[in-house]
Amino acid sequence: MDPLTRNWLWLLALIGATVALAGWPAALLAVAFLKAVAILNGFLHLTRASGWLTAFAVPLGLWLAAIWALHAVG
């Protein structure tokens, strides 16, 4: 299958997961992370640039964890 189409289907599946996981903050943020990585990888082609996916994904992951922490203490 065309990798772009496969990425799109994966994103649609993640949207489905978002709907299914409503009310569960940690899981919702984890799904958001997966969606972001899918866009960076599949659409913005960061897989082709060695090291750059990590450079984007690690700060994003840490930030989403911080959002989860802020949410959990409130």
Binding site: A32, A36, L44
Partner: peptide
Amino acid sequence: MFWHMVDLVWVLLLAPVYLLG
């Protein structure tokens, strides 16, 4: 690339703004 950026920002907005509750 601009359009994917718009996409990327939206998936990051979605949960905190609409869903976390």
